[in-house]
Amino acid sequence: MSVRNDYDRKTAGLAGVRVEGVEYWDMRDVEPREWDHGDWHHAVMGVELTTDAGPVSVVCTNTFHPYGVEIFDEPLSKLVVRGDDGPGNWTVTDHPAWRSRTDQPILAAGTFWERLGFGPGRYSDGSIATPARTVEVPVALRLDFAAGPLWFVAGNPSETGEVFIPGDEIMVVFTPEEMLRIGFPAVAF
């Protein structure tokens, strides 16, 4: 089975699962945290979902190319190494955006794939070092709930509001309007 087929199978397998708890993870365990930006949250390192089917972690990986979003059926606490100052985690289950989706089944799950083109890579004399290539990267994972969809985006938000996609951090986006604002097309995925 191809890596992409395995990815799509894991993602589709989220349909019917109930989210019971939500934790965000950051590289550093510091207070105060700035993570709630209204229509989106900055989970930084990843999101750990407690579900009725077991743990699900949403993180950025380099499976397809640096900075794609991916899910794992392990808690983030098993995927990271803790030091004296991090990483840190905090519970967001009681936040209104999550509370309306907690204890509700995921109705559907899907992925937005971005096609990126590279190269060719060249040496300083102009000769080709590596041929041109394209890769498809999962840059956003959509979960549909009765309360509305949400997206996990592999993106790096800036202080001025722009978002670099794909990025190596996880944003949780709660509205289609915010997805449009950060640059996703107006098509369902």
Rank of each mutant, 00 (worst) to 15 (best):
M1I: 15
S2F: 04
S2R: 13
V3F: 11
N5Y: 13
R9Y: 04
T11A: 07
G13S: 09
L14T: 05
R18E: 11
R18W: 10
R18F: 06
G21Y: 03
V22Q: 08
E23N: 09
E23G: 08
Y24Q: 03
V30Y: 12
E31L: 13
W35T: 10
H37L: 14
H37V: 10
G38L: 02
H41P: 03
H41W: 00
H42G: 08
H42I: 01
A43T: 08
A43R: 03
V44C: 07
G46P: 06
V47C: 05
V47D: 13
L49N: 15
A53Y: 00
G54E: 02
P55S: 10
P55M: 05
P55E: 12
S57M: 14
C60L: 06
T61L: 05
F64M: 10
P66K: 11
P66L: 10
G68Q: 06
V69K: 01
E70G: 01
D73W: 13
E74M: 01
P75N: 09
P75T: 05
L76T: 13
S77T: 02
K78C: 10
K78S: 15
R82S: 01
R82H: 11
G83R: 13
D85I: 03
G86F: 14
P87L: 00
G88Y: 03
N89V: 05
N89P: 13
W90A: 10
T91M: 11
T93W: 08
H95W: 05
P96V: 00
Q104H: 07
P105S: 06
I106H: 05
L107M: 10
L107G: 08
L107N: 05
A108Y: 08
R115S: 12
P120I: 08
G121S: 03
R122A: 00
R122S: 02
G126C: 15
S127M: 14
I128A: 09
A129T: 10
A129S: 12
T130N: 15
A132E: 01
A132N: 07
R133Y: 14
V135C: 14
V135P: 15
E136D: 15
A140H: 14
A140I: 15
R142G: 04
L143V: 13
D144P: 09
F145W: 15
A147L: 04
L150Q: 10
G155A: 09
G155M: 08
S158Q: 05
S158I: 06
E159I: 09
E159T: 11
E162R: 11
E162Y: 00
V163L: 14
I165E: 13
P166E: 01
E169I: 06
E169L: 14
M171C: 04
V172Q: 03
V172H: 02
V172F: 02
V173K: 03
V173Q: 02
F174C: 00
E178H: 02
I182W: 11
G183R: 11
G183I: 09
A186M: 08
